[in-house]
Simulated assay, not measured.
Amino acid sequence: MTGRWQMMVALSLCVALFSANWTALYVAQQAISRDLHLTSAAGVWLIYLYPAALLAVLIPVKGRLSVLLLGLGAFCLASFGAALAPNGAMLIGCRAGQGLAAAIALRAGFELAREHFRGTEWGPALVLPVALAVPALIAGPVIGGVITDYLSFRWVFLINVPLTVVALVLVALFTPRRAPHPHPHPHPRA
């Protein structure tokens, strides 16, 4: 597996993490509302603010690798803050932070991948993140329900911390530092 495909695997794991995180609260929301005394309106904000914040993926970014790492780091911090949130307002703010950080990381990651997969290679490269995102979206409620039933809703957020650290390390290790040249240079004839 070449460096750019290793990078694509690392980016795909990030996509899966963000996808499962999106839907994990659908089941955990009842426990969160009960424990933090959220109103119905606050519960709606908790669920829908993350996907709304993901719309920031439409914002162009510069400095792709550094922005990707920054987005992952911010996602990790927002997840940790959500796990420790003493009230609904802080939890909702951290949830918005998770969505924005995920959007930044996704946009930077896909632009970075686009530099390494050109032309007809781009379509096959996208199969991997999509192949992981769909089952992660489906698994999110199951994961959220199991964690909430056996631990606490706080672990739905806390589990993101080590997973994001792993994603940070994989992205940092496997992302090629230079994009391939668009056209090979012909060798001069002797």
Rank of each mutant, 00 (worst) to 15 (best):
L84T: 10
L70Y: 05
F174V: 08
T175V: 12
I59D: 03
L151K: 02
V130M: 14
P182G: 09
S79Y: 07
A133S: 15
L91P: 01
T175Y: 15
E121W: 05
A105W: 06
G99V: 01
I104D: 01
G144Q: 03
P162L: 07
V130A: 12
V169E: 02
V67H: 00
G144V: 04
A179C: 11
L55K: 11
S152P: 01
G73S: 07
L72Y: 03
G140M: 14
G119M: 02
L70T: 10
A96N: 02
G123E: 13
V165E: 02
P51E: 09
L54H: 11
A172M: 11
R118V: 11
L112R: 14
L54V: 01
V156G: 02
P51G: 05
R118I: 11
L170V: 11
I47Q: 13
V130S: 09
L58M: 14
I47C: 01
A167W: 10
L137R: 10
R177G: 15
C76L: 15
P141L: 09
D149N: 10
A83R: 08
G97C: 03
F174K: 11
F110W: 12
L106Q: 12
L100N: 00
A167N: 05
G99L: 01
A125T: 13
L58V: 14
I147F: 04
V146R: 04
I59R: 12
G81Y: 01
L69S: 05
F157L: 06
R118L: 04
I59M: 14
V166W: 11
A96S: 04
A82R: 00
G99K: 08
T164K: 01
A125K: 05
S66G: 03
